[in-house]
């Protein structure tokens, strides 16, 4: 699994010998066949559909196989407003996805609640309950933005290590694969955020 010397690799490639490592082969296979979960919440889902359709064609990146079952999906695109009514279902769907799994938080609503942040019924960001890999700003983001996020995710997958101390999270047995599903409380979801996943930024105010 040791890194190959780039000069040696280039020299071998000139001679017609293609050298790879298990890690590169594994990541190459994974990053070029990311199967998203067929799952849309609001208007961002329309942009997601447009991304999958012929004009933008996410199939060019190997992500056209939208699966209707979380058991077969690698990627969850949280596309749209996450209401507090919907949040437990999303966490449960995430839990039911097999490892390795990734999350793209698409649009202002999925990131922070967006224009509904001050409302009573919208979750202020899906990253309160599940770990998010790529955030896409926009209301809604254009299909190009989703494609860019997809490429960023591919870049992340490509850089994940197979062994060692910094290996990928799904290969680490200490890292959890499922996260607690919030329940409906008297006024809000209980708990309002998962402290293992979500650390709110410290606000420093000048006196």
């Amino acid at each position: 699994m040791s890194e190959i010397d780039e000069g040696l690799r280039a020299e071998l490639q000139r001679q017609g010998v293609w050298v790879t490592s298990m890690q590169e082969l594994y990541n190459w296979g994974r990053k070029n066949s990311i199967w998203p979960l067929q799952f849309g919440l609001a208007c961002c889902a329309i942009e997601m559909i447009a991304t999958a359709a012929s004009r933008y064609d996410i199939a060019r990146f190997g992500g056209e196989v939208f699966r209707p079952s979380p058991r077969q999906a690698d990627l969850m695109i949280v596309a749209g407003t996450v209401t507090k009514k919907m949040a437990p279902q999303i966490v449960r769907l995430y839990n039911q996805m097999p490892d390795p799994k990734y999350v793209i938080s698409m649009g202002a609503c999925a990131i922070s609640g967006g224009p509904f942040k001050q409302g009573y019924n919208v979750l202020k960001g899906i990253d309160r309950y599940i770990p998010v890999d790529v955030y896409i700003p926009g209301c809604p983001p254009r299909p190009e933005a989703l494609l860019h996020a997809f490429m960023e995710l591919q870049r992340k997958i490509d850089s994940q290590k197979l062994t060692g101390a910094t290996k990928a999270e799904h290969l680490n047995s200490a890292q959890p694969s499922e996260f607690p599903v919030p329940a409906f409380g008297e006024h809000d979801l209980e708990p309002p955020a998962n402290p293992d996943v979500f650390q709110p930024p410290k606000i420093e105010r000048r006196r």
């Binding site: 079952s69 999303i90 097999p98 197979l162 680490n172």
Partner: peptide, 20 residues
Amino acid sequence: VFQPPKPGAGKNATYECGVE
């Protein structure tokens, strides 16, 4: 060798649509 299995209540559930 590489990937430790991580079963759980959600993953092993029979019904798979996010609803209990």
